[in-house]
Design a protein around this nucleic acid. Structure first.
Lengths: 200, 200
DNA sequence: GTCTATACTGAGATAGAC
DNA sequence: GTCTATCTCAGTATAGAC
């Protein structure tokens, strides 16, 4: 009607982000989000199947970008190297969206219901990455392992970078990559040995 | 009070498992679960903070067992080898509970809300494993990577074994272990190359 | 144990685009 | 006319407050 031609969906997302930042997720009702966007509560639920989803639209864009890079990754790379090739390739996209991702991440971290939904999104993305690896000849179970392992590293790198931008995202990814490989070789000491590590 | 001395909590869990199997999770109300267990709806929510939690009590027992084995794992093992040492050690426990885990897994797989909660439980367990590795001297970020990578492999092995017990759980764990290591070395072909793999 | 807010669903009506 | 987006109204179940 007269609230400007900007898409209702986008208005709902912005209203939600603002209200969640102001009062917190639980103290914000779907009706309030809808009202600020100039529509009714029912319209909110037609755009988003539940209240949480309003914060998770960006995942599709990211996945689409990752898909393109995985499909064009060089031949002969190992499964996890394919994934990290794509992760590094989407760094500019993530950097460009940091001003939205950062406050969003804080809201999610403060809200168990949203943290739970984010895990679901990560699992879905891990599964999508696995299917792309299968297109490159990786068999089912190893592909799923690669998807989940890669996503764990990707999520750790991006989360750490959102928390503390002093270390660049590409460097965070490198750290995660090196850290993953070391999980097979770096020895750990038994818990008992910890009591006198320098003494023995 | 005459419904037998079996703990109300356990009766609620059994009622829930049965009702979910009969009608599905969404078509079962908390009041119905409570009624079958001989208590009121209010009592249900006193035992479980939300309806989903009634299916996720076993995680604590499993984690407790894993904790013991990680603490007593041999000195000098790499992070992921510590975790797989513990995973293999709890195989008998899992095998003993298969008659409960199997129907439970089917209900969870059929119910998105429950699958989401299970991811949360897995993430919590990954985090717990990470903290145990930190007690063995592994630093924070690598420990978290190991926790999530290990949990992904553990979950894949147990899920596959619940679906198809023809392959033993210990063998499923071995397959996951080997599969993980190969993610760094086994080459993949580019998607384009797939169209004529034998022709070139 | 009682009461209530609110997330979510379904059916039907309206309005505009094409 | 169809199709799509929205609103209105009525309802149920969860979960938290009292």
């Amino acid at each position: 009607m007269a609230l400007g031609d900007k898409d209702v969906r986008v208005r709902l997302q912005q209203s939600a982000l603002n209200l969640f930042a102001e009062r917190g997720y639980e103290r914000t009702t779907a009706a309030e989000i809808a009202a600020r966007a100039g529509v009714t509560e029912r319209t909110f639920f037609r755009h988003f199947p539940d209240k949480r989803e309003v914060l998770f639209d960006g995942a599709a864009v990211l996945l689409s970008a990752l898909t393109g890079f995985i499909e064009t990754a060089p031949d002969g790379l190992a499964p996890l190297d394919v994934l990290f090739f794509a992760f590094n390739a989407v760094v500019p996209l993530l950097e460009a969206n940091r001003h939205i991702s950062h406050p969003r991440q804080e809201i999610i971290a403060a809200t168990p219901a949203l943290a739970e939904r984010e895990l679901t999104k990560h699992a879905a993305m891990a599964h999508a990455l696995a299917k792309l690896l299968q297109l490159r000849g990786v068999s089912h179970l190893p592909a799923e392992l690669a998807g989940h392992t890669g996503m764990a590293a990707f999520a750790q790198a991006t989360t750490a970078w959102l928390d503390d931008p002093a270390i660049a995202l590409s460097e965070r990814l490198d750290l995660a990559y090196v850290g993953l490989k070391a999980l097979w070789s770096a020895p750990t000491r038994a818990a008992d040995a910890q009591t006198s590590p320098e003494a023995g």
